[in-house]
Structures are given as C-alpha cells and as structure tokens.
C-alpha cells in the first residue's frame, strides 16, 4: 500500500513522515516519531491519555488521523520542558504528588497547559471541568487539581516578573 507523505511541525520542529490512511496521529507520534509521551488508554476519546494540542486546539490524538497533521502544528508533552528545565505544571505535579503510575500524566499536563493558555487564573470548578476529559485511576484527582492551581499561580508570577523587568529596562 502506498503511504501518505506528511510534512508537519511537532513541538516547533519541522517533521516529515509517511503514514497509512487509517493511522491515527497517536500511532504516528508513538510508532513513527518515537514520541511516546502521549498514551493510548482507550482509543475512543474517553480517557484523554493521548491529548495533544493541534493548531492551538486541545484534541485526542487517538481520534485524529496522522495525515490530518499536514501543514499543522502539533504540541506534545515532550515539548513542555525547556531543556532540563521543567514546565511549572510538571514541577507542581511532582511536588504535589499528582501522579502515581503516571499513565494519565502526559494527557493531564497537556490538557492543563491548554487550559492555562486560555485562562491564567482558573478556579477549582473551571479546572475540574477542563480536565473532565482526562481519566486517572490512581490519584483521585484532588492532587492534580491542586497542582494545576499552583502552577497557574507560578505562571502568573513569572508573567508579572517578566512585565516588570521589561518596564524597568
């Protein structure tokens, strides 16, 4: 069978791959690009373990075709840390023990990032609704919600410091 040649951007890097028509974006990321952060929990859009951001929109990569990524931008959990410097969400997840087995964690991190990209100060209920598409069988969710809330505070403080620095320059 003839493959489909796809040129896309993943975490800011230009990436080319060849995939089959029915191959999902999740399978492409994991099996062709070696990005195994996104996980397959259900394959039917229910668990959110496969969450990625496609052209700024949070999606389940198990419900997108790899071929759809042509010319688009994909963000995965692998792009969240800046080298060895963890993203505030990642730091807070560790610190607040917001993970146990960790299977759900990449999905929660990406979904939480999508939330904080559009709402820098979400309340508890907004966090819980925004993460309703992510399932976790281990933590009971409470620690995840607290980690996201703390990371939102970190990001707001970072932004404030940045604006202050710019103003004094």
């Amino acid at each position: 069978m003839k493959g489909i040649a796809v040129s896309t951007t993943v975490n800011g890097d230009a990436v080319d791959f060849v995939c089959e028509g029915r191959e999902t974006l999740l399978d492409v990321l994991r099996n062709r690009l070696g990005l195994i952060g996104a996980k397959e929990g259900c394959g039917t859009g229910d668990c959110g373990a496969c969450s990625v951001i496609l052209d700024g929109e949070l999606i389940c990569s198990c419900l997108a075709l790899g071929a759809e990524a042509e010319g688009r931008e994909v963000e995965t959990v692998e792009g969240m840390a800046d080298g060895n410097k963890l993203h505030p969400l990642q730091k807070r997840f560790l610190e607040k023990a917001a993970l146990q087995c960790g299977i759900c964690t990449p999905g929660f991190l990406i979904a939480a990032k999508a939330l904080l990209d559009s709402n820098e100060n979400p309340n508890e209920s907004e966090i819980r609704f925004a993460l309703a598409g992510n399932l976790c069988r281990c933590t009971g969710y409470d620690k995840i919600v607290r980690a996201v809330s703390a990371a939102a505070g970190d990001l707001r403080r970072q932004k404030k410091a940045r604006l202050k620095r710019r103003a004094t320059k």
């Binding site: 859009g45 959110g48 969450s51 496609l54 929109e57 949070l58 999606i59 389940c60 419900l63 997108a64 979904a111 999508a114 939330l115 925004a130 309703a132 598409g133 992510n134």
Partner: peptide, 9 residues
C-alpha cells in the same frame, strides 16, 4: 458535546 478534547474537533 464531550470534553474539551472533543470540543476542539
């Protein structure tokens, strides 16, 4: 309809 992930699509 669905979660934020589903809403995105």
């Amino acid at each position: 309809i669905g979660s934020d992930q589903i809403q995105g699509r």
